[in-house]
Structures are given as C-alpha cells and as structure tokens.
Amino acid sequence: MKRLIFSIILIYTSLCALAQGDSITLADPTIFKDADTYYLYGTGKANGFGVYTSTDLKSWKLNELNALTKGESFGTSGFWAPQVFKHQNKYYMAYTANEQIAIAEASSAMGPFKQQQLKHITLSGKHIDPFVFKDTNGDFYLYFVRLTNGNRIYMARLNNNLTDIDSTTLKPCIAATEIWENTANSNWPVTEGPTVVKIKNRYYMFYSANDFRNIDYAVGYATAPSPLGPWKKYKGNPLISRRITNQNGSGHGDIFKGNDDKWYYVFHAHNTNSKVGPRKTALIKLKLTVDGNFETVPSSLRYLKNQ
C-alpha cells in the first residue's frame, strides 16, 4: 500500500512538473513582438542565439533551430545580449560577440540571421549590449555600452543601411554616479543593458547598474527630451530590484508593449540566493502614471517556462 501511494505521489509530481514546464534560463533577455507573436531571445548558447515563441506571454516554445548560428555572422564566442527589430520587411539582430557589436539580417524573426560579410561595427575598443531605436521621424540610433573606465552607455546614429554607425555622432549617455548604481564601490562602475522607448514627446532609457554578479544588480531609467539626451535619471530608481522581486541580481532586460496594450519588462535574475547562473528569465508588468513615471506591478511578476 505504501509503495502504491508513493508511486501515485511520484507520478503526480512528475505530471505537475511537466505541466509547469522547464524554467527558461536566458540572461539579458529581449522580447520582440511581430503581429500577435512574441519572440524571446537572450544570452544562453555558446554558438549563437536560440528563439522562443509565444502568443500569450505564458506558454513558450523553443524553436529547434538557432535564430543566429556561429559562422553565419560575426563572432566566435561570447554571444551576448541580442535585440531584434524590423525595418522595410526585413528583420535585424543587433548583438554582442567577441566583445564587439554586429548587426545581422533575416527574412523572418525566427532567423536565420546572417551577414554577407562577417564584420562588427567600426569603433575602437570593446563595446557590448546593443539596442537599436527607431525614432518617429525615421532616424535610427544605436545605444550600447563602451568598456572604458567602467561600463558606460553611449549612443550613435546608424547609417542608412543599418550595418554601421556614424562615429562622428558618438555621444556618452549614462555612467554610474548614484549610490544604488555602485553598491560595491567598485573601481569599475557598471551601467549597461540600455533599451529605449518614446512616449509622446519623451524618451525613456531603461538600464541596469552594478556588476551582474552583485545581488544589488538592478534596473533604473532616465528620461530625455531628445534621443541625444541629456538624460535625467528618475529619482525613484531603482525601479526593479531584489526589493521588488525578492530575487538577487534582477536586471538587464527589455521594455515592450503587449497585445493588451500594457507595458512589460523582461529581465533575468540569479538562479538562487547562493548561485548566479544559469540566470532565470522573468517578466513583470509596468504601469505609466499620469505624471509620466513608471511603476512596477509586483503581483504580475512571473518566471517564464518552456512548455
């Protein structure tokens, strides 16, 4: 009888685990919405980037093929922080590899994203965490991180074919200057993971601060009257942190609007309180107040599962 009860419990537990699915463990996640389908990408593979799809932000399915594969675009290692955008019926992926930034093309959001010439953008030094923003007037800007006296967020205009930057427009945006942004008092302060949206005539840049291994890794935002800045940090930062999520290392994600016309932020968190990776992928709803500030909806927080 005891064996039967144990077997029933074991089967029930297995079925529950199957129903819940496996946790998605993409760091630096981004969600791109095309029509009614969501595409989820992030850091997690040594040979490129995979892609998950969903129609409801709850049930996710991993595609069998990579969205981008090493050898078909720039890079041999360190495939980090992708972002996908669409322009004139083409899909583009901006991403990091070999601590450089490259942009590949595809005919579908599923990929495969490729380059005819395997190259990175023309800029000296090391640079990571790209985000391409298209303004309402049609201009494209690349926001990214330069590794120079810390991780600092910069921007530059993209050229017309969206393959490189106009280096004459290079401009700094944000560096770690606030207490919450460098809780370890590091000699190499970190601000990274920029993502930009425009709401009415105001530009919002979400970004993360602290080393990603730090339990205080968190998300804040700044606003500006122009994509060029100047950027003013929100006084209520950090917006997303372990105080809100109860999970260490909550940060580096992407803001997007869902099919319900609500704002969401996808991000990663440490695996456990004692283990950083593999980092878990999470989603939280945001609310824009009447005075133009963002707030989180803590009850909406959930971790993404592969069904």
Results as ranks from 00 to 15, higher is better:
residue 180 W to T: 06
residue 194 P to Y: 08
residue 132 V to I: 08
residue 82 P to I: 03
residue 304 L to C: 01
residue 124 S to A: 15
residue 231 W to G: 09
residue 264 Y to M: 04
residue 150 G to C: 02
residue 111 G to F: 01
residue 174 I to C: 02
residue 208 S to D: 01
residue 125 G to M: 03
residue 97 A to G: 05
residue 278 P to K: 04
residue 36 D to A: 12
residue 293 N to T: 15
residue 200 K to D: 15
residue 124 S to M: 13
residue 213 R to K: 13
residue 293 N to K: 15
residue 296 T to S: 09
residue 46 A to N: 15
residue 34 D to Q: 14
residue 11 I to R: 10
residue 3 R to K: 13
residue 108 S to I: 03
residue 199 I to H: 10
residue 60 W to P: 00
residue 266 V to S: 07
residue 180 W to V: 08
residue 18 L to W: 13
residue 102 A to M: 07
residue 268 H to F: 08
residue 230 P to A: 10
residue 141 Y to T: 09
residue 285 K to L: 10
residue 225 P to K: 14
residue 60 W to L: 00
residue 241 S to M: 01
residue 129 D to W: 00
residue 269 A to W: 09
residue 218 A to S: 15
residue 129 D to S: 01
residue 251 G to A: 05
residue 181 E to H: 07
residue 289 T to W: 05
residue 11 I to F: 15
residue 110 M to K: 15
residue 114 K to E: 11
residue 101 I to M: 02
residue 10 L to H: 11
residue 100 Q to F: 09
residue 67 A to G: 09
residue 181 E to N: 07
residue 37 T to Y: 09
residue 95 Y to W: 02
residue 34 D to K: 12
residue 74 F to Y: 12
residue 68 L to T: 10
residue 87 H to L: 11
residue 139 D to Y: 10
residue 227 P to W: 01
residue 92 Y to E: 04
residue 298 P to I: 08
residue 84 V to L: 00
residue 280 K to L: 14
residue 162 L to G: 07
residue 26 L to E: 03
residue 167 S to Q: 14
residue 206 F to S: 03
residue 121 I to G: 06
residue 70 K to V: 12
residue 86 K to C: 10
residue 259 N to K: 13
residue 285 K to T: 13
residue 24 I to E: 05
residue 18 L to C: 12
residue 121 I to S: 07
residue 228 L to V: 12
residue 277 G to A: 09
residue 160 N to S: 14
residue 119 K to T: 15
residue 130 P to L: 04
residue 289 T to P: 04
residue 26 L to G: 06
residue 306 N to V: 07
residue 122 T to A: 10
residue 253 G to Q: 00
residue 9 I to V: 12
residue 106 A to M: 04
residue 69 T to I: 08
residue 23 S to F: 13
residue 246 N to G: 12
residue 5 I to N: 11
residue 190 V to S: 09
residue 222 A to R: 02
residue 217 Y to V: 07
residue 37 T to L: 08
residue 65 L to M: 13
residue 206 F to T: 06
residue 222 A to I: 00
residue 279 R to E: 01
residue 251 G to C: 03
residue 223 T to N: 05
residue 29 P to G: 06
residue 91 Y to A: 05
residue 145 V to T: 15
residue 163 T to W: 05
residue 115 Q to D: 06
residue 29 P to F: 04
residue 57 L to A: 03
residue 60 W to C: 01
residue 214 N to A: 05
residue 171 K to R: 15
residue 25 T to P: 07
residue 52 Y to V: 02
residue 127 H to R: 11
residue 133 F to E: 05
residue 12 Y to S: 15
residue 144 F to M: 04
residue 223 T to V: 11
residue 9 I to G: 11
residue 278 P to A: 07
residue 192 E to L: 02
residue 171 K to H: 14
residue 54 S to Y: 00
residue 80 W to D: 06
residue 88 Q to K: 15
residue 123 L to R: 12
residue 256 F to C: 01
residue 265 Y to C: 05
residue 171 K to T: 14
residue 135 D to S: 13
residue 48 G to E: 04
residue 5 I to S: 12
